[in-house]
Amino acid sequence: MLTSKNTLCTRQKITGSLAVILVSAIVIAGCANKKPPVTAGTGTSAMTQGDDFSKHLEVHNTDLAKRLFISDVKSRKSNDLLEINLTLTSRYEKSQKLQYHFNWFDEAGFVIEAGKTPWVPLELHGKQSTTLRGLAPNINVSTFSVYVREIPEKAYKY
């Protein structure tokens, strides 16, 4: 009688543990990706042609800043349009999936082509330095800013 009670107790314990494992599995598998991805990045505040870019640098994501930095921002007028060259350098030995985008403003600081400049995907290889080009959508642009962030992909874990 005592033996069968013990067996029953053990069975219950096993069932209990299984249930706990099941709950944990469900929680981990089902709810783990509910958190929105980190989309903060690094960029510059609005700057004009000839400005020192280092004074305009803004880092909003320190994790990303450890792997990536903006090493140069150059601008000039080409065919009356403001042309930007942005040099991105990787501090990381693996490839990074990134996206970048420019914002354009006129002399008074008003946004031009709001919400129309696309985020451009970019694969930056380990320790690579690459130059990205941006061209103002029209001749009224005098100020610009740029922003770089990661492509939020669930499969990418660093």
Partner: peptide, 21 residues
Amino acid sequence: MNKLALVTTLGLTLVFAAGCA
């Protein structure tokens, strides 16, 4: 006591399963 644990666990399972459906 064990029954209570089992019922609680099952209840939680249902809640999470519903939440994660």
